[in-house]
């Protein structure tokens, strides 16, 4: 009886300790974000940022655009087979555009971004930590938060919303290719139904807000995981995995919350 009781208390203790660890990590991550993202960039900061925009943004362009094209094409194909039963295939443009702008572009682009750029950011910063590059930078009197972390954070913040725009545009074009060019939906109704139903503020604006939120969260997770990891090869691989898992869950969870607030009439 006694041992069973102590067994339970030990479990509660472990649970409590885990809770404390989580809160502590959140606190560390917040301080980390405040210390690195706040502040005016120097002239050199701009060139470091541009360099990271290339690595984080330009190099993610191919995967994001190709995925956007396929998703738009699949949407049109699936949408058409359902809409045509109701004789409503003229609404295909509206369906493709709204699904992409409100949901699929921000979410899928963020997931792809986490896999392509987020994991690379974690691994790169982690490797810099493991090879003492961050420490040696500190000893030279340069703050790695400002020099290494800040340009990467800001590059991620800016790159993902732009990638999301590209994703939507290419997706809508992919829907056009399948719907109009292949399945023979009337071109005029594809575009005019889209124009009539898409609201700039409600649909494009809310989609962009989502994308900005996802950009913040994914980049923050990726960079923090890299900076905070245990500097061994095992630590780097774990942190890279964590980046993708945490970012994906955070994106999907936040998407539900944001959708509820934006479109749920709450």
């Amino acid at each position: 009886m006694q041992s069973k009781f102590s067994h339970y208390t030990a479990r509660v203790t472990r649970l409590g300790r885990k809770g404390c660890d989580v809160v502590e990590a959140l606190g560390r991550a917040t301080v980390f974000l405040a210390q690195s993202a706040v502040g005016v960039p120097s002239r050199e900061g701009w060139s470091l940022w541009l360099r990271q925009m290339h690595f984080v943004g330009v190099l993610s362009l191919a995967i994001v655009l190709v995925s956007g094209l396929f998703i738009g094409m699949v949407l049109a194909l699936q949408g058409y087979t359902i809409l045509v039963d109701f004789g409503a295939e003229q609404a295909l443009g509206q369906m493709v555009a709204l699904s992409l702008l409100r949901e699929l572009a921000p979410v899928v682009a963020a997931l792809l971004f986490a896999g392509r750029a987020g994991s690379a950011l974690t691994a790169e910063i982690g490797l810099m930590k493991a090879t003492e590059q961050l420490t040696s930078m500190e000893m030279i009197g340069v703050d790695p938060l400002r020099r290494v972390v800040a340009p990467r954070l800001w590059a991620g913040f800016v790159a993902l919303p732009i990638l999301t725009v590209g994703f939507s545009v290419v997706g809508i074009w992919g829907g056009y290719l399948v719907g109009v060019e292949w399945l023979g939906v009337f071109e005029g109704s594809y575009w005019s139904n889209m124009q009539a139903s898409v609201s700039f503020i409600d649909d494009i604006g809310n989609g962009m807000i989502k994308s900005v939120v996802f950009a913040l969260v994914v980049t923050w997770i990726a960079v923090f995981q890299g900076y905070d990891l245990v500097p061994t090869s095992e630590g780097i691989s774990r942190a890279t995995t964590r980046t993708v898992v945490y970012s994906s869950l955070a994106v999907l969870g936040l998407d539900f919350v944001l959708t509820a607030v934006m479109f749920g009439g709450l």
Binding site: T131, E132, Q133, T135, S136, E138, G141, V142, D143
Partner: peptide, 23 residues
Amino acid sequence: SRKALFTLRKRMGMLFQSGALFS
């Protein structure tokens, strides 16, 4: 302070075991 520490570090050099060159 963090700033004063970085200023002090300008007066120090450190040679790391791995070299820790920026890759």
